[in-house]
Amino acid sequence: MSTQNDDSNNDGTGSGGVGARTRGLSPGRIGLYAVLLAMLAFYLVPIETGLMTSIKTNGAVIETLPYAPPGPDGFTLQKWERASSTLLRGMGNSMLYAVPATVLSAFFGSLAAYGLTVADWDERYKAVLLALFVAGIFIPYQAVLVPLSQFWGQYVQLEQLLGFVWDLGIDSDYTGIIELVITHVAYGIPICTVLFRAYYKTLSDEMIESARLDGASLRRVYRRIVLPLSTPMFAVVLIYQFTQIWNDLLFTLVLVATESSAAAPVVLILAGLGTGMEGTDFPLRMAGAFFTALPTLAVYILFGEEFAEGVTT
């Protein structure tokens, strides 16, 4: 009997195993996997289609389906070579304003959030300032384009103020880069402040109070305690801000205006890439789009772990 029972258990992992496998492949789980695969295809098919288009000749684009790979005669990397050579100057110009604007808006947002959470002053004033920061998030770009143009063109006139810089041989078109830095910092501070404030509200009050009781000033508490603990949220804010600033076209059109400018950012050059009287060069435009997206992809890869930690806190 025991032998039979043992045999039945060994084979009968059979009955138990089949039951476990059956439970593992329940209709609900199968449906979940199907939905996840459908979502994966929904997001990846457009990327795959664009990538396939970027490595096709113009003739292959017409002769093959968008998502189908090119044949031996339709494969080419010339579009990538041309896109990279055309957009490389714009990539450098975009870095000149995207990196400092991202870092400065994140830093000032952190300071403002620190003041709204840790600093000891009237809660009523904190509420009013917080409401203003929240309102600043919802101001659309389109609503400030005319005031922004008038501010830089008529009131500040930065190009004249920095005349001594242009006398050194630097192209005065780079005035637009400086204007873009200041504009994006001002526009990014509200969202950065709100994000950092939500994160700082989770910090231990006892830890801050003990540092204050030990005689640490507000500045010292921020530098020695709060700032080192802010790494995950800095990753979130830096990724968000860099992506927004890098991809922005409206402010660029207002402050730089033309792709022929020496200071033209990459998005401005990309807008006119592959267009002409003879039609649209879709492989070139796709290659340019992927090339332009490389810095944002690199930022996500570099700060991926910190981003995940910051989102979950």
Score class of each variant (00 low, 15 high):
D248H: 02
L253M: 15
F303W: 08
K56M: 01
V103M: 03
N247G: 05
D205A: 13
F303T: 12
H184A: 03
R29T: 05
A135S: 12
A112S: 15
L161G: 13
A235Y: 09
W166V: 09
A34V: 15
F234A: 12
L180R: 04
S94Y: 03
T3R: 08
G50D: 06
I239Y: 03
A112P: 03
V35A: 13
Q4L: 15
G188A: 07
G279R: 03
F133P: 06
A308Q: 14
F234M: 14
P72T: 06
Q160L: 14
P228M: 12
F151T: 13
F307D: 04
G304W: 12
L25R: 08
P295S: 10
V256E: 01
L65M: 11
A271R: 15
R224S: 14
P147I: 01
K201Y: 07
G176S: 05
Q157C: 04
P283A: 00
P232W: 11
E306R: 13
D214C: 02
V256P: 02
S15Y: 13
E305H: 13
L145F: 06
R212G: 01
N58Q: 15
N5M: 08
L40Y: 10
W166Y: 08
P69H: 00
F307C: 02
T64V: 11
L25F: 14
S261D: 07
R220Y: 06
R285D: 00
L65W: 14
G50I: 03
F307Q: 01
A101W: 02
V128K: 07
L297C: 10
A235N: 05
T86N: 04
